[in-house]
Amino acid sequence: MLRGVAAALGRRALQAACVAFAVGALSFLLVRLLPGDMALRIAAGRYGYDLVSAAAAEAVRAEVGLDRPVLAQFLDWLWRLARGDLGRSLVTGETVASEIAHQLGATLTLALAALLLSVLIGPPLGFAMGLRPGGLADRIGLAVSAALRAVPSFVIGIVLIVVVSVRLGALPAAGHGEAENLVLPAATLALGLAAVSSRVARDAMAAVRASPQFAFARTKGLGEGAALIRHGLRNAAVPVVAWLGVQLAALVEGVVVVESLFAWPGIGHALVHAVIARDVPMVQGTALVLGLIFVSLNALVDFACLALDPRARPR
C-alpha cells in the first residue's frame, strides 16, 4: 500500500512539473499569438477604453518591457517561477501571488461545494437506477442527464437564476460573502457533473448486479440490501470515483464560465479578464494554478481508488 502511494505521488509530482512548464509556456505563447497590440490591450485594461491613447500604450510598453525579445521575456518568467515568484499583474500592479491567493479560496470553495453536491446527487440516483436497469426511473434519468449535459453550464445558470432567484425569490442571483451566495453557482456546476456521474454509477451498478459474484452472494442467502452493501457498492464505486477524475476537467472549464455569470471572485473569472487585457503574468499564474489543482485532484482520485480497490495495490 505505502509503495503504491509513493509511486502514485512521484508520478503526480512529475506530472505537476510538466504541467507547470507546459501551461506557462503555452499561455505565454498563445497570448503573444493573439491579434492586436499588447500594450494597447493592457492600457485598455488599466484605464478603460475611453482613456486609452497612443501615449498611454507607449508608457505601458516601456514599463512592462514589451519591446524586449520574446525569448528573453519567457526565460525571465521561467527563472522567476523557479524562485517561486509569479511576477506582478500588468493591470492592477499587485503581485500575481497575492491576487491568486485571494481568488483561490473562492474557486476552491465553489469547486468543492459543486463536487460534493454532485456526489450527493449523481451516484445515489445512479445506483438506484442501476438496480432496475430499463425501468421508468432509469429511462427518465437518461433523458434528464442527456439534457443537462447537452446544455452549457451558462444556460443552466441562467435558468436557475430565473427560476430560483427571480421567480421564487429564494436565493441571491449573484454576489459573494454569504453562504447563500454559494448555492446557485455550486448547483449549476453540480448539475452538469451529476448528469454524467449518475450514468456512470448506473452502468457500474447494473454491471455489478449482473455479475456472478452478486448472484453468488444472493444464492448463499444474503438479502438484497445486505448483498448490495457488502458486495455491490464498493465494486460499483471504483469506476465512479475514477470517473470523478475525468469530470474534473469539466469542473475546471465550468468554473471559468460560471464565475463570470454569478460575479464570483475566483480564478476562472480572473483568467477571463486577464486574457482580454493581455495580462500575461496573470494568465500564466491562473492557468498554472488551475492546472495544478487539476493534477492534485487527480492524485486524490488515485488514492481513493487505491483505498477502494485492493487489486490495484502492488503486492
Binding site: 442571483a173 454576489g175 455569470l261
Partner: peptide, 12 residues
C-alpha cells in the same frame, strides 16, 4: 457589487 453580465444585473 460588480457584475459584468447584463443578465445577472437584471436578475438582481
Amino acid at each position: 457589487l460588480a457584475a459584468g453580465r447584463g443578465e445577472t444585473r437584471a436578475a438582481l
